[in-house]
Amino acid sequence: MSNSPDIVARSRKMAALAVLCVAVFAAAFIGIACLLSSDNAQSGHEAANAQLEIVSDPLYVLLIGSDSRKGTALYTGKANEHAQLDQHSDIMTLMRIDPETYTVTLVTVPRDTQLAGTSGKINDSLAGGDPNEVVKAVETLTGTSIDYYMMTTFTSFESLVDDLGGTVVDVPLKITTDDPSTGRDVTVKPGESQLLNGSQTLVLARARKEYVDDQDALRQVNVRNIEVAIIEKVMSDPNGADEALAYLEEHTSTNMDFGLAASLVAEFILHKSEVTIYTGTGPHKGSVNDDGLWVVPEDKEAWALIMETVDAGEDPSGIVPLPSFPVS
């Protein structure tokens, strides 16, 4: 593999357009890909000036990937089957956007994290279907006030990736698992710079049992790499800027005004050579608790250090060490 397990401290010179955000999640991920073509950058900036003067402080967006089976071939409606009636936020990426330093920072919130004094996991916060409850749980964990959320599901993520023309990403080893949309097995072959469609990208984002140790941590590495791949995909096609924004709006649910996103992008375009993207993860080491659940204990000291670093606009990637993929 030519890339390191996680893509960190990546500076992007955005020539023809700007991409602000990431794609996610997964039973798996997803994220934001907001952009404008360079031809429209100046006019977009002028139209957004008033709003940008107000939105000068850093803001946080929580990217949520739901594992809901509803609307898929895997849905049975049986209450005794996992994730049939309830859903979980199996992907949570906390994104900080700093309009003054043109820095975007992405931090994974491990789904198995168990908040102190609770019996379940943080991904249970989506069981009632309200993303605002996920926001509250992540705020409790990180001590950070989150301004917005953006959420996708299995089927909406697949559609988003397909509409964008697929992703190009490194695949660490052969993966075969079912595609929720069809119920049929899909195989993703190992190799560098693999072109994956929506179904294959979702398979990569969902897979974890293929890894012996650090299963979900390695899955989240793939998710972050997918997020970066989607950014690069959008950057490669400046003429498709308007369509990409429309796809994002169609395939996600959010409380964020797309006018705000567009105005931020316009400002980032004017400072494209200064844009920096950092990525990292929260604590992911866990064990089986007394109830037989695999959980990651809440680590207040680690999260305090992570968020202190993120709030300072610095690179958090070295705070929590990342595992390596097994040799295939």
Rank of each mutant, 00 (worst) to 15 (best):
N197M: 05
G198I: 07
G198L: 05
G198W: 06
L202W: 11
R206W: 08
R206C: 06
R206K: 14
A207G: 06
E210A: 09
E210F: 12
V212W: 09
D213Y: 08
Q215H: 04
Q215F: 01
D216S: 07
A217Q: 02
L218H: 02
R219E: 06
Q220K: 07
Q220D: 10
Q220A: 13
N222T: 10
V223L: 06
V223K: 09
N225F: 04
I226A: 07
I226C: 07
E227S: 10
K233A: 06
M235G: 05
S236D: 14
N239M: 13
G240A: 05
A241E: 02
D242Q: 14
D242K: 15
D242F: 02
A244S: 11
L248G: 08
E249S: 14
E250A: 15
E250M: 12
S253P: 03
T254V: 12
N255I: 12
N255F: 11
M256W: 12
F258Y: 12
L260D: 02
L260F: 03
A261Y: 00
S263F: 00
S263C: 03
L264C: 03
E267W: 14
F268H: 07
I269L: 12
L270T: 11
K272V: 06
S273V: 09
V275H: 07
T276K: 14
G280E: 09
H284G: 07
H284W: 15
K285P: 01
G286M: 10
S287D: 11
S287V: 03
N289H: 02
N289R: 02
N289F: 05
D290T: 08
G292Q: 13
G292D: 03
L293V: 05
W294K: 13
V295E: 04
V295K: 03
P297A: 00
E298T: 06
E298I: 02
E298K: 09
K300R: 12
K300L: 11
A302I: 14
W303N: 00
A304L: 05
L305H: 09
L305C: 01
I306P: 00
M307A: 03
E308T: 10
V310L: 03
